[in-house]
């Protein structure tokens, strides 16, 4: 009788001990998996490279821009389209279509900005006028210094 009883106590003690070990081992196992996967996951995400902060880029000399012509230049890490209208006015817009990221081009016949990917159209101010683009193109400023065409970011004073 007595020994039976102590047996039960013993097994249940053993069981709680086993359970305890199971939990520790299980948690340890998952922690180990985590410790393996975490660095891999982090490694896959490319580091944020500081945007090459440029405020102005020289697009070339005025002579390279006959009226009604255009050129795509690298502004930091992004392309910017610089174009000159019939009347000689210079404009610069982000060249990345706001629809799905294609690079736009200047349509000299109509003086519009056109994206060949899905037929998106913008006016010379970058406003989306037809096709799928949901937003206007960001505007840049063009400054003429002597004979140089300089593109700068944002508003000029």
């Amino acid at each position: 009788m007595n020994s039976d009883y102590s047996d039960i106590v013993n097994t249940s003690k053993k069981q709680t001990r086993r359970k305890f070990l199971d939990v520790i081992l299980g948690a340890g196992f998952f922690a180990w998996i985590g410790a393996v996967l975490y660095p891999i996951g982090k490694y896959l995400v490319p580091p944020k490279v500081a945007d090459i902060s440029v405020d102005s880029v020289e697009a070339g000399v005025i002579g390279e821009f006959p009226p009604n012509s255009s050129k795509i230049i690298r502004f930091g890490r992004r392309p910017v389209i610089v174009f000159r209208q019939h009347n000689g006015d210079f404009h610069a817009l982000s060249a990345t279509c706001t629809h799905l990221d294609c690079t736009v081009q200047y349509k000299s016949e109509t003086e519009q900005i056109w994206c060949a990917c899905h037929n998106g159209l913008y006016d010379i101010e970058g406003r989306n006028i037809s096709g799928p683009p949901p937003k206007p193109l960001a505007q840049y400023q063009v400054v003429l210094q002597n004979d140089k065409v300089i593109v700068t970011r944002g508003e000029m004073t």
Partner: peptide, 28 residues
């Protein structure tokens, strides 16, 4: 070329086309 405008005829491979075309047809 990073500095060339997109040419006409940019399209995905044919097995993505049915999805791509659907997206193209949907209004904004």
């Amino acid at each position: 070329d990073f500095l060339a405008p997109a040419p006409p005829g940019v399209k995905p491979e044919w097995y993505f086309m049915f999805m791509y075309q659907t997206l193209r047809l949907l209004p904004a």
